[in-house]
């Protein structure tokens, strides 16, 4: 039986009066790529923030490696976050730092490695995401796809146990989308860890996912392998996958 890396247990989240998650439960399998799909604003990105403790649920619990992170103090959460990489939707690179400095930041702050070694690791990590020789350039000088990959490099440079990707291919052309999808698969293999990807891009999801979870109206309405989801009899899933206006999902 597959090991569970993280578990959302009966989680409720609300933003003001809006209920985003209601009694949501989900297991994230260790060593696999789990993709979360759903409508815009359904709360997919919130799941990622729950998994690394950036957001606390209003009720319910979140377990990572069996430990309840909802009761952790901030100092414990900081230790936890060092084991989880996070690639943000718009990369969230620090615009006052060069690409090299961005990627080096977690190593400089969390390790006592000498500068030469950090430089070597940064070069290797950037190379592993297909970005060689951009260390001295600034985020504003790179294309959208390159910035995304630099964000990936920063997320994985400390060899985390898991990496969370928030909409990694949104707004990019099909070729770059393919490159990034391939990069996510390769990085997961290289780290031998877990990946959770929030995305709308079905082609990309079919290419990389081991498991897919569909979020609808605050709950997981379908969960399974790519084949299971594609063959799901659930009309909500089928309407979403086909992009149809007709069906139970209100437009």
């Amino acid at each position: 039986m597959a090991q569970v890396w993280a578990r959302l247990d009966d989680v409720c989240v609300r933003y003001g009066p809006k209920i985003v998650m209601q009694n949501l439960s989900l297991d994230i399998v260790e060593g696999a790529i789990t993709c979360i799909i759903g409508l815009s604003g359904a709360g997919k990105s919130t799941i990622l923030r729950l998994l690394n403790g950036l957001k606390k649920p209003d009720t319910g619990r979140v377990f990572v490696h069996g430990e309840d992170i909802t009761t952790m103090r901030e100092s414990e959460l900081i230790d936890l976050r060092r084991t989880i990489g996070f690639a943000f939707q718009f990369s969230a690179l620090f615009d006052s730092l060069s690409i090299g400095e961005n990627v080096a930041l977690p190593l400089r702050e969390h390790t006592k490695k000498p500068a030469a070694e950090i430089k070597k690791i940064v070069s290797e990590t950037l190379e592993s995401v297909g970005l060689a020789h951009v260390e001295d350039r600034y985020p504003a000088e790179l294309s959208g796809g390159m910035v995304k990959r630099a964000g990936f490099a920063r997320a994985v440079v400390t060899n985390p146990q898991a990496v969370l990707y928030d909409e990694p291919t949104t707004g990019l052309d099909p070729i770059i989308t393919h490159v990034l999808t391939d990069t996510i698969v390769k990085l997961r293999r290289r780290l031998n860890g877990t990946a959770v990807v929030v995305s709308h891009d079905l082609d990309s999801i079919y290419m990389m996912a081991d498991y897919i979870a569909m979020l609808f109206e605050g709950a997981i309405v379908a969960y399974g392998t790519v084949d299971e989801i594609r063959r799901s009899p659930n009309p909500i899933v089928q309407q979403f996958l086909q992009g149809s206006e007709v069906g139970p999902i209100p437009i």
Binding site: L54, I78, L80, R81, Q89, F94, L105, P106
Partner: peptide
């Protein structure tokens, strides 16, 4: 600006205060 471009969350996600 760092808040709205998620740079503050990025710092936190890197385990930095």
């Amino acid at each position: 600006s760092m808040v709205v471009t998620e740079q503050i969350e990025a710092l936190q996600s890197l385990g930095l205060s």
